[in-house]
Amino acid sequence: MKTFRIIGRNFRDAFKGVFRNFSLSLASISCITITLIVVAISIILSYNVNNFTELVEKDVTIVAFIDNDLTEEEIDTIKDEISVIDHVDTYEFTSKDDITTDMRESSDVFDSVMKNWSDEENPIQNTYQVKVDDIEYIEGVAKQIEKIDGITLVKYGEGIVEQLISTFSLIHTISLGAVVALILVTAFLISNTIKITISSRQREISIMRLIGASNLNIRIPFIIEGLLLGALGSIIPIIITIYGYETLYSSFNGQLFSPFIKLIPPTPFVYLTSLVLLGIGILVGMFGSWRAVRKHLKI
């Protein structure tokens, strides 16, 4: 009962503190708001880029072309040899007839050219389509497939894939670094803003100490005040995240430049991001207050 009363009073005092020192509170809140907006943008960017990378990685396929002179048994042997290579995830045989049909359906020019070729003359080759379990090993796997007898050519979009993935991973790293740096900077900025607020209330703190308030008694209302400032500061960033991302998603139809690069669907992504923003705001506010009061307790 006593503890509840103390907690209740601490919250009341914290609310009073926020409103009695409104101009300084507003400074702290704006500071948190601006940083959290940038943090939100970085989180959205970072997760989407991560998502792109995963999509690209899932889609990359090694195509191994098979010599047309091989018999069916020999083609089966190649399958066995591919299956034992490390890091091979899936492999699938596509016959030259399937490929031809596919290509004839998709291109009129091709269709008219192919009409003049008999099945024996068809230059299209049977293929194995191989996926790896980790994109890092794609080059090695491709080289091993190339060594198998009866394989004439191996292709996996080498060069472009690596470049794309290394670019994505760079953006991902930079935006995560930005989030961490921003959080640290805000914590200190807020700590300083709250320090100013608290200096103007030094008298209050010294009186509290004189009448026998323990350090915890003094600190808790200020820490709760920091929590409130953090929560208030995260309101606008959360609104921007939810409405901003949903608008962005629908205006791009959920994809960026090509159907290949898909954006993360807004639900539940924006709500999780909002929770993270609220959490960061609250923690940063509490940490800032805690650090700011500490100085005044060494009386």
Binding site: R209, G212, A213, L297
Partner: peptide
């Protein structure tokens, strides 16, 4: 200690 000062302050009015 600094942290325990409140113990004496509660017994004294100033």
């Amino acid at each position: 200690r600094n942290r325990k000062v409140y113990k004496i302050r509660r017994k004294i009015g100033v």
